[in-house]
């Protein structure tokens, strides 16, 4: 088992910023995300490979890879 799976991805969602466009859900290569009540929700964090495509394409800055700031 690789390290990435041992440590859960630190994917964060800020629901109050989400406008429900579904871009992140659709373009997630690992099907990590889903919609609930018109906003994005994490369906299966285990599958997340922290590629950052959701963050890159979220027009509303509602989803991002958290991590602590000194990790940069």
């Amino acid at each position: 088992m690789s390290k990435a799976i041992e440590k859960k991805a630190n994917l964060q969602i800020k629901r109050d910023l989400c406008k429900g466009c579904k871009i992140c859900v659709q373009f997630c290569p690992k099907d990590v995300l889903t919609m609930e009540g018109g906003k994005v929700k994490i369906k299966d964090i285990e599958k997340c490979i922290e590629c950052g495509l959701c963050e890159l394409r979220c027009p509303d800055y509602a989803i991002f890879l958290g991590g602590s700031e000194d990790e940069e």
């Binding site: 109050d16 910023l17 406008k19 429900g20 466009c21 579904k22 871009i23 890159l56 394409r57 979220c58 027009p59 509303d60 800055y61």
Partner: peptide
């Protein structure tokens, strides 16, 4: 934030 752009507007991506 949130910005004034509509749901699904690409401008937020470009601004980022």
């Amino acid at each position: 934030l949130p910005h004034i752009w509509c749901p699904g507007c690409g401008h937020g991506i470009l601004m980022r």
